[in-house]
């Protein structure tokens, strides 16, 4: 079942055209790895999906409904906020809120969102209980129940990234995006983050992962998009991308150069 469809996304920064017409679709429950050399537009694409950048051209459909159209009227702040909630984003350098405990990091945004509901005053207790219950469950899922009341500065990079994943999940996004989630981590910490991604994939969470971890892309992702100079040079099953008979020469040499 098609969940996301991107049509002809284009984005320039000044004279530099970073995205030159990107189009792809994503099924519910799929794990998509986006790979490519730096400067190929992977991160910009992810930021466009999360409305941190606005594409110059293109349309986005989510669940068959038009969510973004560059040729349409400019969306206001409130509208963009609402659309953003359909996506989660996990950053390369975590970006946890340092003054809050792990648990508070998870609960902050959901609590602020709940407070905007019209019936918040009557059901405040119920809302808060629900949010905290969910946060507790998410902490358990990423294996950090023991760090509930710790501050981010006391955690390792891998632990911080697991908190960041749990925080992104706390808003129940339709699609969870990862921007090179292990690039800021030591190799021995990478594994613990990838394990979380693996378990999310097995639970059929829809994910888009920009990554340099070829092993992860090969093992966990069901599909691979290879970006090259602002266009999609390859889009297909990961078995095909990493297999012997990879049809795309540039992808082949890219994978070869990274695995060395």
């Amino acid at each position: 079942m098609e969940l996301l469809k991107i049509e002809n996304y284009k984005k320039s920064f000044g004279a530099t055209e970073v995205l030159k017409g990107i189009g792809f679709s994503l099924d519910r429950g799929e794990t998509l790895a986006i790979i490519g050399s730096s400067g190929s537009g992977k991160t910009t694409l992810l930021r466009c999906l999360n409305f941190l950048e606005t594409p110059d051209e293109g349309r986005m459909y989510l669940d068959g409904k038009l969510l973004f159209d560059a040729s349409g009227p400019r969306a206001g702040d409130a509208e963009i906020r609402e659309k953003r909630l359909r996506f989660g984003l996990v950053f390369q350098n975590f970006n946890l809120f340092p003054q809050y405990t792990v648990f508070e990091n998870l609960c902050l945004a959901p609590k602020l969102l709940a407070a905007e509901r019209p019936d918040y005053r009557q059901k405040k207790e119920a809302y808060l209980a629900e949010i905290e219950e969910k946060a507790t469950g998410l902490l358990d899922k990423v294996g950090l129940t023991a760090k509930r009341d710790a501050y981010p500065c006391s955690l390792s990079g891998g632990q911080q990234q697991r908190v960041a994943i749990a925080r992104a999940l706390a808003n129940s996004p339709d699609i969870l995006c990862f921007d090179e989630p292990t690039s800021a981590l030591d190799p021995e910490l990478t594994a613990e983050v990838l394990n979380v991604l693996r378990s999310l994939a097995s639970e059929n969470m829809t994910m888009i992962v920009v990554t340099h971890e070829m092993k992860f892309a090969a093992e966990v992702a069901s599909r691979v998009i290879f970006m090259d100079e602002g266009v999609i040079a390859f889009d297909g099953p990961s078995a095909e991308a990493f297999g012997e008979n990879c049809p795309n020469e540039r992808l082949k040499s890219f994978i070869g150069s990274i695995e060395k």
Binding site: N50, F91, L96, F97, N171
Partner: peptide, 25 residues
Amino acid sequence: KGQYEAGQVLGMTKKQIFFKVVLLQ
């Protein structure tokens, strides 16, 4: 910038990001 963006992708308003995330830092 990451602190602002983290707040944004979590659906916080500019005001909430300033007062709840940035100010104490």
